[in-house]
Amino acid sequence: MLDAELIRRCHTVFPGHRARTPAETFAAMAAWCEQNGVQHDVYGNGDLIESFEDKVAALLGFPAAVFCISGTMAQVTALRLACEDRGGRPAALHPTSHIFVHERSNYQLLGHFDALQVGDRNRPWDVADLEAVPDRLAAIGIEIPMREIGGQVASWEELEAIKLHARSRGAHLHMDGARLWEAAAGYGRSVAEIAAGFDSVYVSLYKGIGGLGGAMLAGSREFVERAAEWFRRQGGNVVHRSPYVVAASMQFDARLAAMPDYFRRTQFLHEALRDHPLIRVNPATPAANMLHLHLPVSRERALAIRAELAERHGIWLFNRVSNGVLPDTSYFELYVGDNLLDMPDDRLREALAIFARALT
């Protein structure tokens, strides 16, 4: 459990964006609604939500997109439909797929589809991983970027080869694009270029965008309409989506415009970490505005260091930290957002030096 009061007292905060209080968030939403004459949607019908769905679909290069209350619901629904359309054949997913790691076996227990773990959990797919699967696949799901391995991505050439492979196999190609907005800067491509060749794409409205929650699923109009019906069947038919759409819409353009800056700041941070070889960084070259930092101390010691630096130096380095594979090691994810973007270079370097000394 994070100590919100301790974080608030820190003047040097590394991860993410400055956290707004509920009062600040709701006041900003109310002002934006007033300025833009926003009315509630009713069960997903309304000018604001429909225009936002059209906007996201156009950005991704698809005919249609539909709001979903959660990415968890959006992803399994997309893969369920793809597998049903192809006779119940399995979907291929990377071992670090969000569906395997964070969704409590919903795809199995709720009877959505069968899944195969394909590839090495410590690196992104290449097309050879998929070519080695002898089974007839209904769907292939790929995360861009891959959060559990530090935001890595397949090379552009491998990604294009995977698209061709899926098409030649007649498999539905689905993207977990929860952080697709972030990957665009790393690839140096538009999100539409990255999404070209996919049959469906899920994007988050709260991770990099900073909304209250929610997701979009893009695809063909027929596919999106079928998915929307399944969202209703699964309890996703909330009467007003407007709070989620407002919270995302009011900062959507600004967040997308800032992604290249976040990526450049990540490159700066990556370079600064070279001065502290005790801290191992994954990936070797940033692919998005996120990194995993691997530490030569146990998780318990890392948490103690975090508290000490916050109390004594006003520095908050990370939120959650996990046990490493080796004994007495740990690692944490660092998402680079407004906090690091606005931090003076000297202060960033000083904080890293203090952290590195604490690790010894």
Rank of each mutant, 00 (worst) to 15 (best):
E53L: 06
N339V: 05
A154V: 08
A58F: 02
D85N: 14
A115D: 03
A257M: 05
A171D: 06
A227S: 13
A196L: 06
E300H: 01
M146A: 08
Y206M: 12
G44V: 07
N289F: 06
S249T: 15
Y187C: 04
G235V: 07
D199A: 01
L326H: 13
L212D: 11
R280F: 10
Q35D: 14
Y43Q: 10
Q152L: 11
H112L: 09
P63M: 03
V246W: 10
F198W: 07
A247W: 00
L6H: 05
R265I: 02
G177I: 00
N45W: 00
I142E: 12
L295T: 09
F198I: 00
R221I: 08
S249Y: 11
M250T: 00
T77Y: 03
A139Q: 04
V66H: 11
P145C: 01
A356Y: 02
R179E: 12
A57N: 06
R280W: 11
H172G: 04
L130W: 07
N106K: 11
R104E: 11
A272V: 06
P22F: 04
G44A: 04
R121Q: 13
L6Y: 10
R320P: 09
D176P: 00
F113V: 02
S322K: 03
H270V: 01
G151Q: 07
F52S: 00
R104F: 14
M175L: 14
V325P: 02
A247F: 00
S220K: 10
L348V: 15
H102K: 10
A272H: 03
A92F: 03
D135E: 15
L309A: 01
I279N: 09
A356P: 08
K55Y: 12
R357T: 13
K55I: 00
M73H: 13
H294Y: 14
R226H: 06
A215Y: 06
M290Q: 13
F113R: 07
V42T: 14
G71I: 04
R8F: 04
D54N: 12
H276F: 15
L269W: 01
N36K: 10
A288Y: 06
F332D: 02
G151P: 05
H94A: 07
A28T: 07
L164F: 11
A353T: 08
H165V: 00
R306T: 00
N106I: 14
D346T: 14
R80D: 12
I144H: 02
L303P: 02
V133S: 06
A128D: 15
A257L: 01
